[in-house]
């Protein structure tokens, strides 16, 4: 039995709409037009205990909606959802006691209270036994280097500091599953690294199941073995990052620096993507011409100074993927 099971999940919102301008406003007083927005159309996937899954997709794809349904905040329009054998929105009290949630754009700590007071309150709200709470808190404080921040009111923390505190807050009750909705949004590079490192440790060492949504492809590269791509409320891909990359881009890239002006190359299956002075950027399909053979044939014909092969950047992979599925936000 998987820890998270989602089958045929759909969620539509009803939004009021009116024509722009005064005329539209007046008409809206008498007759309100409603439009149905389908955030999720048909989504199915499952996740085993201890897995770490990244959810990616363009803005408006339905990622946050999925997290909100899984965490029990929202009720789906149709479909089946189970987390640890419980239906989140039917059995809310039991369900939420077993999960932790971090929304990157919101705070669950008390804005005007010192961090430590917020932790104490959460321990009371989750009814964590005092000795278990102290042990757990001390461990999280050490892992997240929160010691110097404990006495500060939350409003005085930087975003990076606050996110570290938010992570601790979400984990004080020792949840089995952690939902992270854009946890690295707005963070600087060191803070992002710290968050990734922490999430990885949590998953590896404690076996916490993690589902995260993100736009930061480096999060995905650093963390997830498995990636789900959704677009317009549907599942587009569910695979490893490497498989995703291979599926989207058969091609790879070769950068060549020549000792003199870059020559005109005409090798079948190889495209010149860019030419700057003595350098060429080539795209090739390794199925048609293996990298070794390509390099050998170039080096045989020209004086080469430096050469390296690379894959397309992950951002490019994803952007291309969205385009292929025509799922960028309208």
């Amino acid at each position: 039995m998987p820890q998270i099971l989602v089958e045929g999940l759909a969620k539509s919102y009803r939004v009021a709409e009116r024509a722009p301008g005064l005329g539209g406003a007046v008409r809206g007083l008498f007759r309100r037009r409603w439009r149905e927005v389908k955030a999720l159309v048909d989504l199915s996937f499952s996740l085993e205990a201890g897995e770490l899954l990244a959810f990616i997709g363009p803005n408006g794809a339905g990622k946050s909606t999925t997290v909100k349904i899984l965490s029990g905040i929202l009720r789906p329009t149709s479909g089946r959802v189970e987390v640890g054998g419980l239906v989140p929105y039917e059995d809310r009290l039991r369900h939420v006691a077993r999960i932790g949630v971090v929304f990157g754009q919101r705070s669950q700590l008390w804005w005007d209270l010192p961090v430590l007071d917020g932790f104490d309150l959460l321990a009371d709200i989750y009814r964590v036994p005092p000795d278990r709470y102290r042990a757990r808190r001390d461990e999280l404080v050490a892992m997240l280097r929160l010691e110097p921040l404990l006495a500060q009111p939350v409003r005085q923390l930087s975003l990076g500091q606050r996110m570290r505190a938010e992570f601790a807050a979400a984990l004080l009750h020792d949840p089995e599953v952690l939902f992270l909705d854009e946890p690295t949004i707005g963070l600087d590079a060191p803070a992002k690294l710290a968050v990734r490192e922490f999430v990885k440790r949590l998953n590896r060492e404690r076996g916490v199941t993690v589902l995260l949504t993100t736009h930061d492809m480096h999060d995905v590269e650093a963390l997830a073995e498995r990636v789900i791509v959704i677009g317009q409320g549907r599942l587009l891909a569910d695979s490893s990052l490497d498989a995703l990359r291979a599926g989207v881009f058969a091609e790879r890239r070769l950068w060549v620096d020549f000792t003199e002006e870059a020559p005109a190359l005409d090798i079948p299956g190889v495209q010149v993507r860019a030419r700057t002075g003595r350098s060429l950027e080539l795209a090739f399909d390794p199925a048609k011409i293996p990298a070794a053979q390509l390099i050998a044939s170039i080096a045989a014909a020209h004086a080469v100074e430096d050469i390296h092969v690379d894959e397309p950047a992950i951002e490019e992979v994803i952007a291309r993927f969205y385009d292929l599925h025509d799922s960028s936000e309208a």
Binding site: K68, V96, A97, V101, R106
Partner: peptide, 14 residues
């Protein structure tokens, strides 16, 4: 208005 009510729904209490 801020959506903080979402976090209220995440607390295992009445």
């Amino acid at each position: 208005r801020t959506g903080g009510v979402g976090y209220d729904r995440l607390r295992p209490i009445d």
